[in-house]
Amino acid sequence: MHRTFLPFTQVKHHKAIVVDSLHPNGLVLSHWRGAPVPDGLAGDTSADIVFNALHAPKLNLDYEFVTANHFDIDGFVGVWALLNPELALAYEAILRQAALIGDFRELNLANTGAGHALQLVCWINAKEKELFYRPFGADETAENEVIASVPKFDFFLREFEKILLQPETEQAVWDPEYNQVMRDYARIHSSATTVEKYPEIGLVCVQTPEPVHYYALFSVTSGYDIVLAQYQNNRYELEYKYTTWVDIHSRPTLPRLSLAPLVIELNNAETTGLTWTTENITDTGPILRLAGTTLNKAERYANPTERPIYASSLSAPVFKNKILAYFRTAYKNIQPEKNWSWEKVKMLNQQMFRPR
């Protein structure tokens, strides 16, 4: 049937398929924690769930409207697929890869369709910044994300098909970021970079000379949820990936734990005069970093190459050992699970870090 995009502000008045969001007035196809996804449709990205729904013969998809409460690549792919199901299914592998790269930043050029998907993602990124506001930048506009994202959907839903079918027509747009990603990807997969994995705590340590694009940095982190990036001259960032903000279906995960005690320990050892900071566990991607300046969410979401990363007084081995010791102790009696609720995660943190 023919479907139409519905601004999220109208979903209370019209039943709709709700993509990458939550609302009770319709069918929810979202990987957000606690989303009431129908049995048998679960996936890692919201786009995965949408494609699973398109393949489900007994599922009622007889809805006139499709909606989402924000614009990002995963949600957009899901919305576009529901509005263009036949073409979406023909390009399913590429579109699933685009959603994965856009949401989890896990580029794997060995995956079917990944190169084409990267071109699409880079085109969306470039046009989004050129014509609208950057991701998590709605605070820089006069409207909130629910309202401000509607013109983005209008534009990309109109223009995406021709780029999907003929990406070379917009190569001048996607090429700059694409080339940066390819250069950084080559560096991350070269002898210039050391990758150490600690599966018992879900952590990957990436030691590379200079900051790189996220799609390159996270290309070696599939199956892991914490990334410690160590650059030359004692520059470090520690990040919980978005994979621990949503319900991923392919594997169990460890819950997010507060980094506040770790921040205190690091600040007690730091002698530069700068301060280690981090965000709350409910942030989409908490970053533990040495803060010479305060970053807003849009700046934190941007690539490591786009923000200052300051030198610590702690050597790389000392810093890494502190990080490993913290998580090994914190996760010692916790087992990975699927479908952690925020209530359970918060209660666990309260029990672990209550004042004694």
Rank of each mutant, 00 (worst) to 15 (best):
V206D: 00
L262K: 04
P355G: 09
A47L: 07
W174D: 07
A330L: 03
K344C: 06
T9M: 09
T194A: 12
L6F: 00
K127F: 05
W245L: 09
G115T: 12
K297G: 15
K338E: 10
Y326T: 11
E265V: 11
L324I: 14
H189K: 06
G292M: 11
G292S: 14
L290P: 08
D283I: 00
W174C: 05
A99V: 04
D283P: 00
A126S: 15
E306P: 00
T9K: 14
L89C: 10
D139H: 11
V212D: 01
Y331W: 03
D225W: 10
S250H: 05
E200Y: 05
F155S: 02
L59W: 00
K127C: 06
V195I: 15
I226K: 05
T221S: 15
G113V: 07
N84E: 15
L89F: 04
S312P: 08
T253I: 14
W174T: 05
E177S: 13
V206T: 01
S46H: 02
G34Q: 06
E159D: 14
Y215R: 04
C122L: 07
L6G: 00
K344T: 14
L83M: 11
F65L: 01
F353Q: 09
G202V: 09
A93T: 09
K58M: 01
E343A: 15
K152G: 00
L120M: 13
Y331L: 15
W342N: 07
V220N: 08
I281L: 13
L254D: 03
H70F: 03
D44K: 04
P317R: 06
E128W: 03
N52V: 04
D247P: 01
P252K: 00
T112A: 12
T272R: 05
V204E: 03
G285C: 13
T305G: 03
P308T: 07
Q180T: 15
V19R: 03
